[in-house]
Design a protein around this nucleic acid. Structure first.
Lengths: 207, 207, 207, 207
DNA sequence: CATGAATGAGGGTTCATTCAT
DNA sequence: AATGAATGAACCCTCATTCAT
């Protein structure tokens, strides 16, 4: 009694937790795991340091959680974009589009995944390689399908997918390093799409 | 006599210094900048901690210096390999070969550059983007030449070079994650070469 | 009506307060002052942390209060048992019996007094030495009387009482450390009684 | 070379370690484990906080080590005093004498053992009960011998030894609470000896 | 030159306490 | 009355760096 709990209170608490997590993503993305201090995060969230430990068990757990959540979000978003089409050229076009979109609108998400977690923690290394693996598989699936259906000539789908994963990451990171990433986004999407189609010796008409 | 003695001393000093730097490269590559402690480095060098500060001003300076030196070594080695040939296909083949070679024989060098310096230090960020920039230019030069001479169709040489840089890095990192990288090295070189030639719509005969 | 209502309220409030204090005694006895957290106490009382501070000003004050209250209870119970008899042997027998009873039925009370408050807080030190002092005096009174009446030979009543206080505490603590203290309780009472009577060179017939 | 190590340096280091441990004993004895902070200890040793961690792995380990070392010292000293004689009265006289001596000359040692470690740490609880156990056995040995040889009547040697252990502790703690413990020391020894001999119904001539 | 004892700023975390609801 | 989210002082500990020997 008293305190009509589980209604507005709970919502507010969840909102705050979410806000703190977003702030944490920014800070981790900016400085990387080690350089980012809990004090930095609470400063960015405008709360006291004790509040951090009210919402999260510790810095490491939060980071790993954020990393996984963010990885899932990125991978699922791209995956859905790819799966929304059945033609290879469309699949790449959409997938790259989705990736670039996230990079432009949520640059911290991409930075967290690509640079924030590097060399962070032993316990994260496995998550990281897991993320890389899933990223590679993301691009490998449409490739293998296209090889099966004869849309593209036979090739090492796995290795090509690795190359794509690395290529897209680098180009997107370079894009984010520019003063106005959104200006270039469309061009990047198109060029990467054509690049990838050429790289797999795709003979159909590009999108 | 005197100059010889001082010469020897100098040599000895340089030898120790070099040994410590090599140990440091290993440690930094292994753990990343923050997780690597000065104590780890001196332990690996089998000297006292004071000795470290006799040879190097501080951890950060050493790291930055190592990063630059290592970057120079990698870039120059690849660059020379590329410049040793004049035909695009050969240039890529040799360049990739050189990169893979370094990765297989000096994995710490590659790890230091690709992961050890990520999110390490603000003062390193500029060196890192510098390194990325030079890496991109490395591949862009032969591309632009080939475009100029009509060997390959017109395309955004810069962007394609970025994609290559990222692609090669990722594939090489994946190679290093395998149990016996040297077993796969030759295949990786060939596949990456073909990949890159297809990606630029090269019509000549592959090497 | 009004006074009854407020009466009920008062009763309810007191009941809750009492319940919390009992829970606190258990927690303090279990972990000691420092290791016991306010959160432990409210968890054991099944109330919110704010409620704790509604009933008690702070952790330290509660602990001191609990300590004093518990000390009073223990000392008075033993004292009454002693005063219920006029013969030395009976007095010791009854006093020891009372002490052992409390230990068996309210072990937390004994633990709180004997170990929970040790090295807890500067402000408690005086209460602790006070408790020890009263405990000593408890046993000293019948001793001095017996010396006065010639029941036992002359001796340093104070020092002997100190020895008894310490002896009883230790034996009782050892008893509480056993798996089933109540099994041994009767034997402990008898042995301690005989022990103490011998120690004061009592020549009458033991109880 | 340089630095004639393992001679003066090592001695100095050991001396400092010892000095810090003594300071730590004082601080732990004064405040108890939890209330004593590492900063208190280094302040008492007049060194920086890092120096503490150069010599000791952490607070807990040091405390446990100190506790064990101190316990061994106390128990062995008393044990030797007891074993130096073969007659019960002499054994108790000497043992008590040894205990009181330590209390007077090294009060912190006694305080650390009797109050400093109470409710400190789960990992210490076993050491504590171990210490109590050994303390009891210390007094039980001469008792059981005397019972065997018929020097004293049959009785529960274990329980009596517990009582003695508690009695001596309490009297000694009370002694240490006095303004000038050494003034009373001799009287305490004599009285406790007589007390214990009476308590076991010893009929020979007291020392 | 080389050593390693010594330093202390700063990081992660706990927990008694407050206060708006 | 009761709640529990929020606070921040203070704790333990690490590690880059210095300096007397």
């Amino acid at each position: 009694m008293a305190y009509r709990s589980s209604d507005k209170t709970r919502q507010k608490k969840d909102a705050k937790r979410t806000a703190m997590m977003q702030a944490a993503v920014q800070v981790f993305a900016e400085s990387g795991y080690h350089a980012a201090t809990v004090r930095d995060i609470v400063k960015a969230s405008d709360v006291a340091i004790g509040t951090f430990y009210f919402y999260f068990p510790d810095k490491e757990t939060l980071f790993v959680h954020l990393y996984e959540e963010t990885a899932d979000f990125l991978l699922q978003t791209i995956d859905q974009a790819i799966r929304s089409r059945s033609e290879l050229a469309q699949q790449f076009s959409r997938g790259i589009q989705a990736y670039v979109n996230i990079a432009v609108f949520e640059p911290a998400v991409v930075r967290l995944l690509l640079v924030g977690g590097v060399g962070a923690i032993p316990s994260l290394e496995i998550k990281r390689s897991n993320f890389r693996e899933r990223m590679v598989r993301l691009w490998q699936r449409p490739l293998d399908q296209a090889i099966d259906t004869g849309t593209i000539p036979n090739q090492n789908g796995r290795r090509v997918a690795e190359a794509f994963a690395g290529a897209f990451d680098e180009v997107i990171l370079q894009l984010l390093a520019m003063p106005e990433p959104d200006m270039e986004a469309a061009a990047v999407v198109q060029e990467l799409t054509l690049f990838s189609l050429r790289a797999v010796a795709y003979k159909g008409t590009p999108p």
